[in-house]
Computed example of a mutant assay.
Amino acid sequence: MSSLKKKKKVTKFDIILYSISAILLIIILYPIYFVVTASFSEPAAVASGNVWLWPKGFTLEGYTELLKHKEIWIGYKNTILYTVAGTAIGIFVNITAAYTLSRKDFVGRKFFMLLFVFTMFFNGGLIPTFLTVKRFGLYDNFLVMVLPFSVSAFNIIVARTFFQNSIPSSLWDQARIDGCGNVRYFVQIVVPLSKAIISVLGLWIAVGQWNSYFNALIYLKSSSLHPLQLILRNILITNNMQTALGSGEAAQIALRRANLMRYSVIVVSTLPIMCVYPFVQKYFNKGVMIGAVKG
Protein backbone atom coordinates (compact mmCIF):
# COMPACT_ATOMS: atom_id res chain seq x y z
CA MET A 1 0.00 0.00 0.00
CA SER A 2 2.82 2.36 0.85
CA SER A 3 4.38 1.89 -2.55
CA LEU A 4 1.08 2.80 -4.21
CA LYS A 5 0.91 6.03 -2.25
CA LYS A 6 4.32 7.13 -3.43
CA LYS A 7 4.21 9.93 -5.93
CA LYS A 8 5.48 9.21 -9.37
CA LYS A 9 8.90 10.74 -9.92
CA VAL A 10 8.93 13.38 -12.62
CA THR A 11 11.70 12.64 -15.09
CA LYS A 12 13.39 14.89 -17.61
CA PHE A 13 11.49 13.10 -20.34
CA ASP A 14 8.19 14.01 -18.65
CA ILE A 15 9.23 17.67 -18.46
CA ILE A 16 10.19 17.71 -22.14
CA LEU A 17 6.97 15.91 -23.13
CA TYR A 18 4.76 18.29 -21.12
CA SER A 19 6.63 21.31 -22.48
CA ILE A 20 6.16 20.19 -26.09
CA SER A 21 2.49 19.44 -25.42
CA ALA A 22 1.99 22.89 -23.88
CA ILE A 23 3.67 24.59 -26.84
CA LEU A 24 1.53 22.65 -29.33
CA LEU A 25 -1.59 23.49 -27.32
CA ILE A 26 -0.76 27.20 -27.46
CA ILE A 27 -0.04 27.01 -31.20
CA ILE A 28 -3.43 25.38 -31.80
CA LEU A 29 -5.55 27.49 -29.44
CA TYR A 30 -4.03 30.94 -29.96
CA PRO A 31 -5.42 31.48 -33.52
CA ILE A 32 -8.91 30.73 -32.19
CA TYR A 33 -8.37 33.09 -29.25
CA PHE A 34 -7.00 35.78 -31.57
CA VAL A 35 -10.06 35.62 -33.83
CA VAL A 36 -12.37 36.06 -30.83
CA THR A 37 -10.25 38.92 -29.48
CA ALA A 38 -10.03 40.63 -32.87
CA SER A 39 -13.81 40.46 -33.28
CA PHE A 40 -14.13 42.79 -30.25
CA SER A 41 -11.31 45.15 -31.31
CA GLU A 42 -11.03 48.16 -33.56
CA PRO A 43 -9.98 47.17 -37.11
CA ALA A 44 -7.13 49.71 -37.07
CA ALA A 45 -5.64 48.09 -33.95
CA VAL A 46 -5.89 44.64 -35.52
CA ALA A 47 -4.35 45.79 -38.80
CA SER A 48 -1.45 47.50 -37.01
CA GLY A 49 -0.69 44.32 -35.03
CA ASN A 50 -1.48 45.79 -31.62
CA VAL A 51 -3.98 43.06 -30.70
CA TRP A 52 -2.27 40.16 -28.96
CA LEU A 53 -3.91 39.05 -25.73
CA TRP A 54 -6.67 41.57 -25.05
CA PRO A 55 -9.09 43.53 -27.25
CA LYS A 56 -7.92 47.03 -28.16
CA GLY A 57 -10.65 49.63 -28.54
CA PHE A 58 -13.36 47.25 -27.34
CA THR A 59 -16.41 47.36 -29.61
CA LEU A 60 -19.45 45.24 -30.44
CA GLU A 61 -20.06 47.07 -33.69
CA GLY A 62 -18.97 44.10 -35.79
CA TYR A 63 -21.66 41.90 -34.26
CA THR A 64 -24.34 44.60 -34.38
CA GLU A 65 -23.61 45.27 -38.05
CA LEU A 66 -23.70 41.57 -38.81
CA LEU A 67 -26.94 40.92 -36.93
CA LYS A 68 -28.67 43.74 -38.82
CA HIS A 69 -28.93 41.31 -41.71
CA LYS A 70 -32.21 39.46 -41.06
CA GLU A 71 -31.27 36.68 -43.45
CA ILE A 72 -28.72 35.44 -40.90
CA TRP A 73 -31.53 34.02 -38.77
CA ILE A 74 -32.93 32.27 -41.83
CA GLY A 75 -29.47 30.85 -42.46
CA TYR A 76 -29.18 29.66 -38.87
CA LYS A 77 -32.52 27.90 -39.09
CA ASN A 78 -31.65 26.25 -42.41
CA THR A 79 -28.19 25.20 -41.24
CA ILE A 80 -29.57 23.64 -38.06
CA LEU A 81 -32.17 21.72 -40.07
CA TYR A 82 -29.58 20.60 -42.62
CA THR A 83 -27.18 19.54 -39.87
CA VAL A 84 -29.75 17.57 -37.87
CA ALA A 85 -31.37 15.89 -40.87
CA GLY A 86 -28.09 15.35 -42.73
CA THR A 87 -26.40 13.84 -39.68
CA ALA A 88 -29.29 11.47 -39.00
CA ILE A 89 -29.47 10.31 -42.62
CA GLY A 90 -25.67 10.11 -42.92
CA ILE A 91 -25.32 7.97 -39.79
CA PHE A 92 -28.11 5.66 -40.92
CA VAL A 93 -26.84 5.01 -44.45
CA ASN A 94 -23.15 4.76 -43.52
CA ILE A 95 -23.61 2.59 -40.44
CA THR A 96 -25.99 0.17 -42.15
CA ALA A 97 -23.74 -0.09 -45.22
CA ALA A 98 -20.64 -0.58 -43.05
CA TYR A 99 -22.29 -3.30 -40.97
CA THR A 100 -23.48 -5.13 -44.08
CA LEU A 101 -20.00 -5.02 -45.62
CA SER A 102 -18.45 -6.27 -42.36
CA ARG A 103 -20.51 -9.48 -42.40
CA LYS A 104 -18.46 -12.37 -43.78
CA ASP A 105 -21.61 -14.17 -44.92
CA PHE A 106 -22.62 -11.26 -47.18
CA VAL A 107 -22.24 -12.48 -50.76
CA GLY A 108 -20.22 -10.12 -52.96
CA ARG A 109 -19.06 -7.87 -50.13
CA LYS A 110 -15.58 -7.47 -51.65
CA PHE A 111 -17.08 -6.37 -54.96
CA PHE A 112 -19.36 -3.80 -53.32
CA MET A 113 -16.52 -2.58 -51.12
CA LEU A 114 -14.45 -2.05 -54.26
CA LEU A 115 -17.25 0.07 -55.71
CA PHE A 116 -17.27 2.29 -52.62
CA VAL A 117 -13.48 2.65 -52.65
CA PHE A 118 -13.57 3.47 -56.37
CA THR A 119 -15.70 6.57 -55.63
CA MET A 120 -12.94 7.92 -53.36
CA PHE A 121 -10.64 8.34 -56.37
CA PHE A 122 -13.00 8.86 -59.32
CA ASN A 123 -16.34 10.61 -59.73
CA GLY A 124 -18.56 11.77 -62.55
CA GLY A 125 -17.67 15.44 -62.20
CA LEU A 126 -19.72 18.52 -61.43
CA ILE A 127 -21.79 18.73 -64.61
CA PRO A 128 -23.02 15.08 -64.65
CA THR A 129 -23.77 15.36 -60.91
CA PHE A 130 -25.72 18.58 -61.47
CA LEU A 131 -27.74 17.00 -64.28
CA THR A 132 -28.46 13.94 -62.14
CA VAL A 133 -29.62 16.08 -59.21
CA LYS A 134 -31.86 18.13 -61.50
CA ARG A 135 -33.34 15.04 -63.16
CA PHE A 136 -34.29 13.59 -59.79
CA GLY A 137 -36.12 16.82 -58.97
CA LEU A 138 -33.74 17.78 -56.16
CA TYR A 139 -32.53 21.06 -57.61
CA ASP A 140 -33.50 23.97 -55.34
CA ASN A 141 -34.93 21.46 -52.89
CA PHE A 142 -34.31 21.01 -49.17
CA LEU A 143 -33.38 17.34 -49.74
CA VAL A 144 -30.45 18.19 -51.99
CA MET A 145 -28.46 19.23 -48.91
CA VAL A 146 -29.07 16.05 -46.93
CA LEU A 147 -29.75 13.17 -49.32
CA PRO A 148 -27.56 12.87 -52.46
CA PHE A 149 -24.20 13.35 -50.71
CA SER A 150 -24.95 11.48 -47.48
CA VAL A 151 -22.87 8.40 -48.37
CA SER A 152 -19.16 8.64 -47.52
CA ALA A 153 -16.80 5.83 -48.52
CA PHE A 154 -14.30 6.92 -45.87
CA ASN A 155 -16.92 6.79 -43.10
CA ILE A 156 -18.05 3.36 -44.30
CA ILE A 157 -14.49 2.04 -44.20
CA VAL A 158 -13.92 3.36 -40.65
CA ALA A 159 -17.23 1.94 -39.40
CA ARG A 160 -16.71 -1.40 -41.16
CA THR A 161 -13.29 -1.77 -39.51
CA PHE A 162 -14.92 -1.03 -36.15
CA PHE A 163 -17.56 -3.72 -36.66
CA GLN A 164 -15.00 -6.29 -37.80
CA ASN A 165 -12.65 -5.72 -34.85
CA SER A 166 -15.07 -4.87 -32.04
CA ILE A 167 -18.23 -6.94 -32.57
CA PRO A 168 -17.46 -10.66 -32.03
CA SER A 169 -18.97 -12.97 -34.62
CA SER A 170 -19.93 -15.30 -31.77
CA LEU A 171 -22.59 -12.79 -30.74
CA TRP A 172 -24.39 -13.36 -34.03
CA ASP A 173 -24.15 -17.12 -33.64
CA GLN A 174 -25.65 -16.97 -30.16
CA ALA A 175 -28.36 -14.54 -31.24
CA ARG A 176 -29.29 -16.74 -34.18
CA ILE A 177 -29.63 -19.76 -31.89
CA ASP A 178 -32.07 -17.74 -29.78
CA GLY A 179 -34.12 -16.99 -32.90
CA CYS A 180 -32.89 -13.44 -33.49
CA GLY A 181 -33.06 -12.14 -37.06
CA ASN A 182 -30.66 -9.82 -38.85
CA VAL A 183 -32.63 -6.62 -38.30
CA ARG A 184 -33.32 -7.31 -34.63
CA TYR A 185 -29.69 -8.29 -34.04
CA PHE A 186 -28.46 -5.08 -35.63
CA VAL A 187 -30.91 -2.81 -33.77
CA GLN A 188 -30.81 -4.42 -30.32
CA ILE A 189 -27.23 -5.69 -30.11
CA VAL A 190 -24.92 -4.06 -32.67
CA VAL A 191 -26.14 -0.46 -32.37
CA PRO A 192 -25.93 -0.28 -28.53
CA LEU A 193 -22.38 -1.65 -28.71
CA SER A 194 -21.42 0.91 -31.38
CA LYS A 195 -22.13 4.19 -29.57
CA ALA A 196 -18.49 5.25 -29.84
CA ILE A 197 -18.20 4.94 -33.62
CA ILE A 198 -21.69 6.37 -34.13
CA SER A 199 -20.70 9.43 -32.09
CA VAL A 200 -17.49 9.86 -34.10
CA LEU A 201 -19.26 9.61 -37.45
CA GLY A 202 -22.02 11.88 -36.18
CA LEU A 203 -19.44 14.52 -35.27
CA TRP A 204 -17.70 14.28 -38.64
CA ILE A 205 -20.96 14.48 -40.58
CA ALA A 206 -22.36 17.30 -38.43
CA VAL A 207 -19.23 19.44 -38.85
CA GLY A 208 -19.27 18.82 -42.60
CA GLN A 209 -22.94 19.77 -42.84
CA TRP A 210 -22.51 22.87 -40.70
CA ASN A 211 -19.58 24.17 -42.78
CA SER A 212 -21.03 23.18 -46.15
CA TYR A 213 -21.69 25.98 -48.60
CA PHE A 214 -20.51 24.71 -52.01
CA ASN A 215 -23.46 22.35 -52.57
CA ALA A 216 -25.84 25.17 -51.61
CA LEU A 217 -24.04 27.51 -54.00
CA ILE A 218 -24.49 25.05 -56.88
CA TYR A 219 -27.84 23.41 -56.18
CA LEU A 220 -29.91 26.00 -54.27
CA LYS A 221 -31.45 28.94 -56.08
CA SER A 222 -33.94 30.25 -53.50
CA SER A 223 -32.42 32.50 -50.84
CA SER A 224 -34.92 31.13 -48.32
CA LEU A 225 -33.08 27.78 -48.49
CA HIS A 226 -29.54 29.14 -48.17
CA PRO A 227 -27.49 27.89 -45.20
CA LEU A 228 -25.68 30.20 -42.81
CA GLN A 229 -22.25 29.78 -44.44
CA LEU A 230 -23.51 30.86 -47.84
CA ILE A 231 -25.34 33.87 -46.41
CA LEU A 232 -22.25 34.99 -44.48
CA ARG A 233 -20.19 34.55 -47.64
CA ASN A 234 -22.62 36.75 -49.59
CA ILE A 235 -22.51 39.43 -46.88
CA LEU A 236 -18.71 39.57 -46.98
CA ILE A 237 -18.67 39.69 -50.79
CA THR A 238 -21.22 42.53 -50.76
CA ASN A 239 -19.16 44.54 -48.27
CA ASN A 240 -15.97 44.02 -50.29
CA MET A 241 -17.75 45.16 -53.45
CA GLN A 242 -19.02 48.30 -51.71
CA THR A 243 -15.48 49.00 -50.56
CA ALA A 244 -14.06 48.53 -54.05
CA LEU A 245 -16.74 50.58 -55.81
CA GLY A 246 -16.92 53.37 -53.23
CA SER A 247 -14.74 56.44 -52.97
CA GLY A 248 -13.72 58.91 -50.32
CA GLU A 249 -15.45 58.74 -46.95
CA ALA A 250 -18.01 56.18 -48.15
CA ALA A 251 -15.22 53.78 -49.11
CA GLN A 252 -13.55 54.25 -45.72
CA ILE A 253 -16.80 53.50 -43.89
CA ALA A 254 -17.41 50.41 -46.04
CA LEU A 255 -13.83 49.21 -45.46
CA ARG A 256 -14.15 49.63 -41.69
CA ARG A 257 -17.46 47.77 -41.70
CA ALA A 258 -15.97 44.93 -43.74
CA ASN A 259 -12.99 44.64 -41.38
CA LEU A 260 -15.25 44.70 -38.31
CA MET A 261 -17.45 41.93 -39.65
CA ARG A 262 -14.63 39.71 -40.91
CA TYR A 263 -13.79 38.20 -37.54
CA SER A 264 -17.36 38.42 -36.26
CA VAL A 265 -18.46 36.19 -39.14
CA ILE A 266 -15.93 33.52 -38.14
CA VAL A 267 -17.11 33.56 -34.51
CA VAL A 268 -20.81 33.48 -35.41
CA SER A 269 -20.35 30.62 -37.86
CA THR A 270 -18.14 28.39 -35.69
CA LEU A 271 -19.32 29.03 -32.12
CA PRO A 272 -22.34 26.66 -32.12
CA ILE A 273 -20.43 23.64 -33.45
CA MET A 274 -17.55 24.34 -31.04
CA CYS A 275 -20.01 24.30 -28.14
CA VAL A 276 -21.29 20.88 -29.20
CA TYR A 277 -17.87 19.31 -29.70
CA PRO A 278 -16.90 18.89 -26.00
CA PHE A 279 -19.97 16.73 -25.37
CA VAL A 280 -18.90 14.12 -27.94
CA GLN A 281 -15.12 14.47 -27.51
CA LYS A 282 -14.99 11.60 -25.00
CA TYR A 283 -16.23 9.24 -27.72
CA PHE A 284 -13.88 10.57 -30.40
CA ASN A 285 -10.57 8.87 -29.54
CA LYS A 286 -12.38 5.80 -28.22
CA GLY A 287 -14.30 5.29 -31.43
CA VAL A 288 -11.34 5.78 -33.73
CA MET A 289 -8.97 3.60 -31.71
CA ILE A 290 -11.50 0.79 -31.32
CA GLY A 291 -12.01 0.89 -35.06
CA ALA A 292 -8.28 0.80 -35.74
CA VAL A 293 -6.55 -2.27 -37.09
CA LYS A 294 -5.30 -4.42 -34.23
CA GLY A 295 -2.14 -6.49 -34.48
Rank of each mutant, 00 (worst) to 15 (best):
H69S: 13
N50P: 09
Q174W: 00
N259V: 00
F58R: 05
I237A: 14
S48V: 14
T83N: 05
Y185K: 13
N234G: 06
I95R: 03
G179K: 10
A254P: 02
P272G: 02
G246E: 00
L147P: 06
G291E: 07
V276M: 09
L114C: 09
I28N: 02
P55G: 00
V207P: 06
Y263D: 10
W54N: 12
F122C: 01
F142M: 05
Q209E: 15
A45D: 10
A98R: 12
S102H: 12
P192Y: 00
R262V: 04
P192L: 05
G295C: 07
N141M: 10
G75Y: 10
I156S: 04
S199K: 05
N259Y: 07
A88Q: 04
A47W: 05
V84H: 04
T87Q: 14
L230G: 01
G295F: 09
N234P: 05
I189T: 13
S199V: 10
L66K: 11
T79Y: 09
D105K: 13
S48D: 14
Q188C: 12
A254F: 01
F34S: 07
I253C: 05
V117M: 15
D178C: 08
W204H: 05
N155E: 11
I26E: 09
V183K: 04
G108I: 02
I32G: 02
T96L: 14
G49D: 04
V36G: 02
N141E: 08
M241L: 14
Y99R: 10
R103K: 06
V151G: 02
S102R: 13
V46F: 13
R135M: 15
S41V: 08
G49R: 00
A251C: 05
P43R: 13
N50G: 14
D14H: 15
D178N: 14
L126G: 00
A251R: 08
A175C: 07
Q252H: 00
T87K: 12
T132M: 14
F284D: 03
P227I: 12
K7N: 05
K134P: 07
V276Y: 13
A153H: 08
S152V: 03
V158D: 07
T129K: 02
G246A: 09
N78R: 05
F214K: 07
V117N: 10
K294V: 02
G125W: 11
D14M: 08
V36L: 00
N234T: 01
T100P: 14
A159H: 11
L228E: 00
L236M: 12
I205Y: 02
I218S: 03
T129I: 02
P227V: 13
F284S: 08
G208D: 00
A206P: 06
V36W: 01
Q174L: 08
T129Q: 08
G90F: 03
F154V: 15
K77S: 08
V46W: 12
G108F: 01
S224V: 10
M1P: 03
V200H: 04
W73F: 15
Y213T: 03
S269Q: 01
K9Q: 14
A97F: 05
A250Q: 08
S21E: 11
